[in-house]
């Protein structure tokens, strides 16, 4: 069976759902963050596949932007996690209930 656009999209879907599952089920802030990275990567794969099968470069430019934004996001997010850890001595979402009513 020849590999087409849908094959890449299915792989991207599987990776996205894995990331989503990790965000919902895992309770460690760092693992949740890695799952978010997985979801961003799944979107990147879908965009590159669309770019290839539509013969347009724009998808790759958007992926370039996504990678940059993801790098900035990781830096800020990890700084937030470190600041939280300094206050609460925990990187576990169930210990961070300050905003709960």
């Amino acid at each position: 069976m020849n590999v087409g656009l849908e094959h890449y999209l299915i792989v991207s879907t599987i990776l996205f759902c894995l990331g989503l599952w990790g965000v919902i089920v895992r309770r460690n802030l760092l693992i949740i963050y890695m799952s978010l990275e997985l979801m961003l990567n799944a979107a990147n794969l879908a965009l590159v596949a669309f770019s290839r099968y539509n013969n347009k470069m724009d998808g790759q430019v958007i992926v370039f932007f996504i990678i940059t934004v993801a790098a900035a996001e990781v830096a800020v997010g990890l700084a937030l996690i470190v600041a939280l850890y300094r206050k609460k001595q925990s990187a576990h979402v169930e210990d961070l209930t300050t905003m709960k009513l």
């Binding site: 990567n41 790759q60 992926v63 370039f64 990678i67």
Partner: peptide, 21 residues
């Protein structure tokens, strides 16, 4: 995944993916 990018002819993005991620 960078390998998949190479299969999709996105060579520069594959390099950036490995370098940045």
């Amino acid at each position: 995944m960078a390998g998949l990018f190479i299969l999709l002819n996105a060579f520069f993005l594959a390099a950036v993916q490995i370098l940045v991620y």
